[in-house]
Amino acid sequence: MGLSLLGQGAFAQETGGLPSTCNGNFVNPISDICWDCLFPLSVGSIPVVPSRHPDTRNPSFPICLCPISAPPFVRPGIAIGFWEPARLVDVSKDPWCFVNIGGLNISPGFDIGHKTTTYEDGSAHEGQYFVHWYIYPLLYWLELLADFACVENASFDIAYVSELDPLWQDDELSMLINPEAAVFANPIAQAACAADCVAVTTTGQNVPGLFWCAGCHGSIYPFNGNLGTDTTRIQGAALAAERMTYKLHRQLIAWRTSGPEAICQKQIAPIWPREQYRYQLVNPIPHVSGPGTCPRAGTATIVYESGRTIPAVGEDVGFLVWRKRNCCAL
């Protein structure tokens, strides 16, 4: 049996005899985007367009030099820093639910992704999420800053589907790419994450060095969708999206694009540079203004959801991932 598209909106899919639904909306590239999240825009260390959102580290000088292969073997430019809407993320408890493309539910024609994971005592995980990662170069797609060399030149595409990845569904298999999880699975390391939770929620900045923490959302390890802590709908979805971000860095699919070291070209970063990411809620309700827009990883969801009424339908959430970009522009 080939792929069967069941349509858009809310769907019924038989999984183990129980119906499941998929809810979502197409992301409007104009009205559903928090365009204030593009800022601050900086030249060197100077914020040309300031913002209430905290920034990352920028180069000290406005003039930059990048090596090239032809004479004169160096290219001068202007050190630019800005935030780019670069990726979309689906998070759902239903497999094959593509939230950000209209709530599209796909039946693959084979039994993959439909799996229940339990603890040794027989109890189920509190949260088990599936994640899809889209390439979403919105600035290039809308031909905004089209002549700006720093904008990612790509097309819309689905880059990663967790249902096809056995490491995403199994705690033991995921240890193959995150063996260091055993080092941080202790009360002292996890207690340090409380400080990260307070810092990122109150100041918008994570505590430097605590890469094993996802602030108020829980532990960033292991790199899969089996969450031991799933207190709210948005908290669980945000943690799943953050784990996928780290996982893609570990698998060398995502790269460092921020900081002076990345000004000439993207850098390999197997330890995720969490400070270069913001996660804007776009499904089920776009969060485009007010407090808590585009929060950093681990920000308390009480800030994220402040003043917003989230429909009590399904467990399907979509995020727009904003990525900090430093580059040497001509």
Rank of each mutant, 00 (worst) to 15 (best):
N178Q: 13
C197R: 01
H132V: 13
E143L: 06
L144F: 09
V183P: 01
P108W: 05
A181D: 13
F82R: 10
V200Q: 07
K93E: 15
Y134A: 03
Y140K: 13
Y134L: 06
D90M: 10
F156I: 14
A195F: 08
N100M: 06
Y129F: 14
W168E: 04
L139Y: 02
E180S: 06
A181S: 13
I101R: 07
V131C: 11
I135R: 11
E180L: 09
E120A: 14
F148C: 14
L167T: 05
C197H: 00
D111A: 11
E180P: 00
A194C: 05
Y160R: 02
T118N: 11
I188R: 08
D147L: 13
D90K: 02
I106N: 05
E84C: 02
Y119N: 12
V151P: 06
D111C: 04
A192N: 12
V91C: 01
A159S: 10
A154S: 14
C193M: 04
D170W: 03
L164G: 02
W141T: 14
H125M: 13
I78Q: 08
V198T: 15
W133V: 11
L144T: 06
C150G: 15
D111H: 10
T203H: 03
A154Y: 04
Y136R: 01
E180D: 15
I78K: 05
L173W: 04
D111F: 07
A149F: 05
L145M: 12
Y140W: 11
S123N: 08
A191T: 10
L145K: 03
N186G: 12
G122E: 15
D111Y: 05
H125P: 00
E143V: 09
L88K: 07
H125G: 01
I188E: 15
D90H: 11
G77Y: 10
A154K: 14
I158Q: 09
G103I: 09
C97H: 02
T118Q: 13
T116N: 10
F184R: 00
I106W: 04
A194I: 13
S107R: 05
I78Y: 02
G102A: 09
K93P: 00
P108M: 09
L144Y: 08
L173H: 01
I158F: 04
V91E: 01
L142M: 14
A195C: 05
G127Y: 00
D170G: 06
A185W: 11
V89Q: 06
G109Q: 02
W83A: 10
Y160T: 03
D196V: 02
N186Q: 05
K93R: 12
L145V: 00
A191V: 01
A86Y: 12
L88F: 06
L138A: 09
I112L: 12
E180V: 03
V200R: 05
F130V: 04
G127A: 08
D111Q: 13
E84R: 00
V151F: 10
D121I: 02
D165I: 09
S92R: 01
D171N: 11
I80L: 15
I135Q: 13
Y136P: 07
N153E: 15
C150D: 07
L176S: 07
V161Q: 12
T202S: 15
N178P: 09
S123D: 14
A79M: 08
A195S: 14
N186V: 02
D147T: 10
L104F: 06
A181E: 15
C97I: 02
M175P: 01
Q169R: 11
W168M: 09
G77R: 00
T116G: 10
A195D: 13
E163D: 10
L167G: 03
W133L: 08
W141K: 06
P108C: 07
T203V: 07
V99M: 04
